[in-house]
Amino acid sequence: MPKTVFEPSIKSRPTYGVLEHRPGTAHLMVADAEGAQALLDLAHSAPPTLWTQAMIVYIPGRSGQQFTQALANLSPSQLHISPSYAAAQPRLHKILQTAHAGLQIYLAGTESLMGQAQAAAMAVGVPHRAVQMEHRGSLARRVQCVHCKGITENVTTDPFECSHCGLNLFVRDHYSRRIAAFQGVNIDAEDPGQVPPAVERFT
């Protein structure tokens, strides 16, 4: 059973499963914060040989040192600890661009992390359904402003202020895999200045 239970929503809103071992010639695992726990749980059911072919990219975020030693104890072929997704991107892209058929991809953690890594995999021709994803941790959203196209990370309230153009946006469940973001739409377009109080919805 997935550890995170989401409210029923519309059909573009992504859903997530539970990581499971799939036969492959190499295994790319990308996780952030509590997403590490999904990899550790996978270790309970996966054969130990999985880890000798596993490349783990881990972004600890708010979890700090909590999971790093446990991940190292899995003895993956590579364990790369990165301070942010942006910092991890060049390495991820290199792995994806040089990947052979038979690469399995496992993503775990926040929607922002999984969405961006999935989009990177899609960009090199991996079908989106071939990427496994398990949500753990924060429900904060990555949201694209439909007006200025700027993306605001770690959105926890609805409405929120676009970090690029400053418009007050409400957060839709409509989601673009290509952009790896939910859609934000100006909440006071029809009645400028009438912005309801921000409510913590995504924590």
Partner: peptide, 22 residues
């Protein structure tokens, strides 16, 4: 509706925001 946001979506995904019809 935004093509820039919806391009690349499947049939049910780009119609996701429509109420009642699903």
């Amino acid at each position: 509706w935004s093509l820039d946001f919806d391009v690349g979506m499947s049939f049910h995904e780009w119609h996701a925001p429509v109420p009642l019809a699903h």
